[in-house]
Computed example of a mutant assay.
Amino acid sequence: MIELAGELICVSPQEAEVVRAYLPDHVALTREEEGCVLFEVLPVGGGVWTVHELFTDMTAFEAHQARVQVSEWGRATAAIRRNYDVREVADPVEPAAEHVHDHPHEHDHAHHPHGGDAG
């Protein structure tokens, strides 16, 4: 997976207003992209937004970057400073499905009432 993390840094109230105006559509479009696992842009104050993106692979990430370059968001925010790190990360591990019993050892005793070997 490809992760981008960092900050979008506005140096003026005008830049911050541009972000607020264009961000909702940008977030919605990005979350619909094939390969987008996570996309969050959250204000932290002082004209700074934290950015966290996760894409399934480099192909999906590069397709996102290409779309952004020609999008309304890309054109409107091109001059706004970005401080991003991009890195490859391991796929998240999904927990194994566990079969839950009301009585965990009930099954063992039903087949082997004396604990002996069935073979």
Rank of each mutant, 00 (worst) to 15 (best):
N83F: 05
R67K: 06
W49Q: 03
H64M: 08
H112P: 03
A16C: 03
A66S: 14
V41C: 05
Q14N: 10
C10H: 00
E33D: 15
P43F: 00
A97G: 11
F55V: 10
H26G: 09
Q65A: 15
R87K: 11
D57E: 07
V37C: 11
E7I: 02
P24A: 11
E7M: 12
T59W: 02
G35M: 13
V19L: 04
G6T: 00
T77W: 00
A21G: 07
V19H: 00
R31E: 08
P95N: 12
V48I: 15
A76W: 00
P24S: 08
L54I: 10
E98I: 13
A78I: 09
V89G: 09
E98L: 13
A78C: 10
G35P: 02
T50W: 02
G35S: 07
G45I: 13
A76K: 03
E98Q: 15
H112K: 10
H64Q: 07
E62P: 01
V19F: 01
C10P: 00
R81Y: 07
H107Q: 14
W49D: 03
G115F: 05
A96S: 08
A28S: 11
G45K: 08
V70G: 03
A5R: 08
E62N: 14
A118E: 11
I80L: 09
T59M: 13
H52E: 04
F39R: 02
A5K: 07
E33F: 02
A96M: 10
A16Q: 03
L23I: 07
P104N: 13
I80C: 04
F61V: 09
H105R: 10
T59S: 14
C10S: 06
V19P: 01
R82Q: 13
G74Q: 09
E94F: 08
V68M: 13
A90P: 06
A5I: 06
F39Q: 03
R81E: 13
T59Q: 15
A118G: 05
W49P: 01
E98D: 14
V89E: 10
Y84T: 04
L54V: 12
F61T: 08
V37A: 09
R20E: 15
V37Y: 02
H64P: 01
C36A: 15
R31M: 04
I9V: 14
T30K: 01
G46V: 09
A28H: 04
A63T: 12
A63S: 09
R20N: 14
E53P: 01
P24C: 09
L8N: 01
D91H: 09
H105I: 11
V68I: 12
A63Q: 09
V93P: 02
C10R: 01
P92C: 06
S71P: 10
L54S: 12
V11Q: 14
E40P: 01
W73D: 11
E17H: 06
G6R: 00
A97Q: 08
V37R: 05
M1T: 10
V68D: 07
R20C: 11
G35E: 04
H26D: 13
W73G: 12
